[in-house]
Design a binder for these strands. Structure first.
Lengths: 207, 207
DNA sequence: TAGATTGTTAATCGATTAACAATC
DNA sequence: TAGATTGTTAATCGATTAACAATC
């Protein structure tokens, strides 16, 4: 039961998955959903789901399942997305542009607030609603805005240097699209989105 | 030791990470690398790395470490990327375009061979080197080319339907960028790249 | 040879599952 | 009430780590 012990990271990592599924269920007009139903939708065992959720509180009702709206609200609160986080984007090539224009951040807790590049050809151009700024201004601008989350969409060769800069500017969480492992201080988190890694994980199982 | 028992998926999932680090090390001009050195570069324990690699064979030399070129070759073989896999891309919006033009697939085992969309405005237009085709032709084209890997870059609302179509066409591995869980048969693998999920995993730890 | 590092074993640690009393 | 489903416990299962003999 409930939220005072340390929650294992595997459990935290499933929370956004539950949240996404709950939001879909709500869109379908459901108001309540059982761990069994969630299990079928996600391929995660019902016992696992109940155990995970029980670490944060008693949200379920026996005989009926979980009230969707209340659980969504609770998960958003536990994940600290009961607010909107400003994000700084670095690297505005094809992928950076796609991210700057991506509509999926807004209603899930995030907003790209600034975009930087080092290429003079790109600086001053438009990316989504933003004007691309010179990466040399990054540290000052990010510090002033107290931005805590960075997205790296540069080539691999630049990514570690950009990470250092973000860390220096006070960023504590980095989403890295560049195909390279980043070395950062212990109090900074990194998540990786190199598309080739999951592809290679799957080809292992292909004939 | 060596490769006849079933390898746990966690181990398989680390192989591409090792491979990427080894390729970087080779680019730096190294010819041999110890588990200790790899550990520092990746934040994975040296014991873990040795144990993982030992499941595939005895690639290391006591006192010296692992010969990089040979290990790269071996990992590529075990991951079945000692060849180039054709991939079918579905959904050619901003993200799909970025993927079609991404240079990082070619030398890591993949090639986007076809791109489909259902929007008449997009069909016939250029995406990277490809001409966007009508999604109604997908099943036939994919079957004929015997393509086994699909990438979904459509909106969430279309993703499950596209997945069904890919499965019908014989695809066995799907990389899904749409923010939705896909339900597919047991012999089909799915990997997810919704950028919001990792962001929400990190905000849990932000104040 | 001396020093370094592997592959492997056994011990530890952590995560998942099964089962069921509690209860809506 | 009867039926369904939770939260939790204990048992199982699996993954990681520590340690070291073997050996390059």
């Amino acid at each position: 039961m409930s939220s005072r012990e340390k929650i294992p990271h595997v459990v935290v990592s499933r929370l956004p998955i539950y949240l996404r599924a709950l939001e879909h269920a709500r869109q379908e007009g459901l108001t309540c959903i059982s761990s069994q139903e969630l299990s079928e939708r996600l391929g995660i065992s019902a016992a696992q789901i109940r155990k995970d959720l029980s670490m944060f509180g008693e949200y379920g009702k026996q005989g009926r399942g979980y009230p969707i709206a209340a659980l969504i609200e609770a998960l958003r609160r536990h994940l600290h997305i009961d607010r909107v986080w400003d994000v700084v984007l670095v690297g505005v090539g094809d992928l950076g542009h796609a991210l700057a224009r991506y509509k999926g951040f807004a209603n899930r807790g995030f907003r790209i607030a600034m975009a930087f590049d080092k290429d003079p050809e790109r600086i001053g151009t438009q990316a989504g609603d933003l004007v691309v700024e010179d990466v040399r201004l990054l540290a000052r601008r990010v510090q002033e805005a107290a931005i805590k989350i960075g997205m790296i969409a540069t080539p691999a060769a630049a990514a570690q240097e950009v990470a250092n800069l973000l860390v220096f500017a006070g960023v504590k969480a980095i989403l890295n699209y560049a195909p390279i492992h980043l070395t950062v201080p212990d109090d900074v988190r990194v998540e990786y989105l190199d598309p080739v890694i999951p592809l290679q994980r799957m080809t292992y199982y292909l004939a």
